[in-house]
Write a protein that binds this DNA or RNA. Structure first.
Length: 243
DNA sequence: TCCAATGTTTCGCC
DNA sequence: GGGCGAAACATTGG
């Protein structure tokens, strides 16, 4: 799950803010006793982290690759890692990693990096990006300390939008292109959010998981790239000008 | 049936 | 101590 999806989740959880937990249970190794009777004070997301702030403690939920959730609905044959029941509804989190957060850890989040935050600071991100001059753009875009919330979908679509290739090094790009790529990642995050909300995300992918380019119909090359060895999709026509 | 994949952490080894 | 690969976790669609 990528950053924009977490923002949508925080919006879905708004009805439970200032509500008291009636039942807290699930398969995660957590102190559920401490959670029941707690009042949910705030729901935040930073990158791919969901942060649940209760009066009695803070928890971080990470959905990793397969994590999901349901609001006022339960998946059949699945025990949620965490289920929070309130008077006005409930939420189930599945296949996720949950751990308590110290107050100091919450205070340490740098919101100026979060692509979905109002505090996102382009100049700061560009500076961090340029410092990785010897690394491949496919790896740096996925670096959660520079682009928290950016996942493999956004990596591929953003590189496509800029007509670059995943294995280019940051230092090979012109200064102008470095800025344009960082900007494109930020813009695509919000585009992702808008499409996801109206359930039109997949249909708008240009190359990700496509055999042919949605823009030109040309063949899409698939390869694992970078030290992260993650899937890259490249339109040989649209992105071919540098080959 | 098999495989890959919207991801991260931890562990053992060099 | 850093870097690296493997393993662990866990689910679903193609």
């Amino acid at each position: 799950m990528e950053g924009p999806s977490l923002v949508i989740l925080t919006e879905e959880l708004k009805p439970y803010i200032r509500k008291k937990v009636r039942i807290a249970e699930g398969g995660a190794k957590l102190d559920f006793r401490a959670l029941s009777k707690a009042t949910l004070k705030k729901v935040l997301s930073w990158g791919k982290h969901l942060i649940l702030v209760f009066d009695s403690g803070i928890f971080r939920v990470h959905f990793l690759m397969f994590g999901t959730y349901r609001v006022n609905e339960a998946k059949k044959d699945r025990i949620p890692k965490l289920r929070l029941e309130f008077d006005n509804g409930f939420v189930n989190f599945y296949a996720c990693a949950i751990r308590p957060l110290e107050k100091s850890e919450l205070e340490a989040y740098d919101w100026s990096l979060d692509l979905m935050s109002e505090e996102w600071d382009e100049r700061r991100v560009v500076k961090l990006f340029r410092a990785k001059k010897d690394e491949m753009i496919c790896d740096v875009l996925m670096d959660q300390t520079i682009f928290p919330g950016l996942g493999n979908i956004m990596k591929n679509e953003t590189i496509y939008i800029r007509k670059l290739l995943p294995e280019m090094r940051v230092g090979e790009l012109t200064s102008r292109e470095q800025l344009a790529l960082v900007r494109a990642a930020h813009e695509y995050s919000w585009q992702f959010y808008e499409w996801k909300k109206i359930n039109q995300l997949k249909r708008n992918w240009k190359v990700f998981r496509r055999r042919v380019c949605a823009q030109c119909g040309g063949k899409v090359l698939y390869k694992k790239t970078g030290k992260l060895d993650r899937a890259s999709y490249i339109c040989e026509d649209c992105q071919g000008e540098f080959i």
